[in-house]
Amino acid sequence: MMEKKQLRKADFVTSILLILFGIWELAQSFQMPMRDTYGGVRNVWYVSPALMPLVIGFGVIILGAVLMINSIRTGGAADFIKSVQSFSLKISDSGVRFIGTLLAIGTFVYLLIPRVDFFMSIVFFLSFFIPAFAFDSGEDLKKLMVFYGGVCLIMVILFITPAADALNALFMFATDVLILIATIGLNIYAARLAKGDDTKRSRFRTGLIVAIVTPLVLTPVFRFFLLVPLPHEGGIVQLMQIIYYSLR
């Protein structure tokens, strides 16, 4: 949690957001049916689907207002205005770590999981996420973020244009192979960053093992034991399937 002074400052911003949200929510609610028959039910105000949303909307606005008054009274609002005037775009170390976490989770969920082979997406994700924080160095984190972010950007471009489909049609599992190459590249890069530092090197080694073992355990357990179809079953999952069927 933040410090008290910071909190009051943040409260001012949140209170504005809350009040705006409440107004928007009320506006939406008032468009819901409140009379006449709807869905086979004779509508009265107390039956309307708008009933709870209205309560929520008013509640949020009232509490938002209370929050705002408190923030103004304790000087949070004034602090906020002051800080806006002396605004600067400098990101602290913990800010970089925050962005790094978001980058990892965001790309994993929105880019990798839905489009890339399940196994490969976990290996790629962990190959970035573990060394990025385990090296415990702001410089390394930034470098790895640039590398990882660059690869993801290329993938995004591939996937929003028809390029990915064309590639996959040309060569089976082309995108999976691309991620495989990127993963190898990422690991070589991380290994170079770890060079000459024994703690980093041992952490890199542990990280690499974890990055491979985790999906190696999870994929078969979910796919073949718990019978959960995976979001994207690309090259490696299909390979596992062939092995599974030939063993059975």
């Binding site: 089976m172 599992f173 192979v177 495989l180 690991n187 491979i212 299909q238």
Partner: peptide
């Protein structure tokens, strides 16, 4: 370690033929 990667690539190729 590089050997591991080589192995993975080789397996992927075998898989391609198997399909």
């Amino acid at each position: 370690m590089k050997r591991v990667f080589a192995l993975v690539v080789a397996l992927a190729l075998v898989a391609g033929f198997a399909f």
